[in-house]
Design a binder for these strands. Sequence first.
DNA 1: GTCTATAGCCCGATAGAC
DNA 2: GTCTATCGGGCTATAGAC
Lengths: 207, 207
Amino acid sequence: MTPKDTDRRSEILDAAAELFAHKGVASTTVREIGESVGIYAGAIYHYFPSKDAIVRELITGYLETLNAEYAAKAPRRLAPRARLRAVVEVSLRTADEKPHATQVYQDQLRNVRDLPEYRRAKALADEVQRIWLETIEDGKAAGVFRADISSKVFHRFLRDAIWLSIKWRHSGDPYTTEELVQDCIAIFLDGFAVRRARRTRPPAPPR
Amino acid sequence: MTPKDTDRRSEILDAAAELFAHKGVASTTVREIGESVGIYAGAIYHYFPSKDAIVRELITGYLETLNAEYAAKAPRRLAPRARLRAVVEVSLRTADEKPHATQVYQDQLRNVRDLPEYRRAKALADEVQRIWLETIEDGKAAGVFRADISSKVFHRFLRDAIWLSIKWRHSGDPYTTEELVQDCIAIFLDGFAVRRARRTRPPAPPR
DNA sequence: GTCTATAGCCCGATAGAC
DNA sequence: GTCTATCGGGCTATAGAC
């Protein structure tokens, strides 16, 4: 495959991602994808065997990046609070860098997770969940997270809040990802209620 | 309109809601809606002028119910913490009672909020948001909620966590709505971290 | 009020020229 | 590698019989 092919391929992938994220996969036509990169619909099929193959590649690529980033930036040796912060930060930064793929993943996974073509995507998604739950369980075992709330419930609340943040951010906000990470950790770990008795621990160091 | 008409109409509405929620609006055909109530596609158009009119009625009905319940169960005279709890509880119970309409609303609102046919739905959605923000701002003014976190950010996190809970619940869980409300309030107000210094206030009274 | 039948349109995907 | 042209099919919505 020549470099030109690679360029064109990823051009198509990017254009499709943007359309899918904006209008939904079902409502986006192959013709529209072609138009937005300046070729005819038929030519798309020179690079991808089907429309669904584009969706699949977007989702798989997103999940691969996410898992690689978790492994690099949120290793198990970190203290639970620091590791959870790292997991949150990686998730938000990845959503920042690949907002369209993130959106497509969230919109589509439920519809496709049981299809045999998506076996690999499902395995990658399961690994993401495993890392989240391990982080939470380790924190409970260390006594820094509350044992009276189910790990799965906490995981889902936090994950959903993070996922959906891509729908209300990027509107030209001055609100940075770093601020979002801080607010996220502040709310989910320390709560929105004003504390009667101040905690003795200093705030988490900036990174 | 005879009672039989009314029955048939809401039968169609319910069947459509279930299909829309499960497969997405775009991927659900009018034929399928007809099949699931035992009539032909053409007959649907005797009750609704278009497929979109069904979607619109579902969304508007959901938002009307939600606003009415807020007014009844979460009046402004409640203390901020109690009112926030009531808003959360009403939101979760309404999602429980109309899971399909809730899902359709969440899936569709972004796509349709600027369409003139959805002016009324948008106004109702704006009122929902106004109540949430008022509750949060009142709590800040009373000194029971943290002033260092943006009300909008907190609102979005909490709202998204609640909304998405319909996607992972109702799987025959023994986990009740009441437990979910409690966990939700516990996490979002008091945080998931173990507290070094115990709060002097007793736990919120059950209702 | 519900049926059958179909108009009219757009879709994903393919074939073959260049 | 991209074009033009088109196939086969599914869609929403309509028309007219009963």
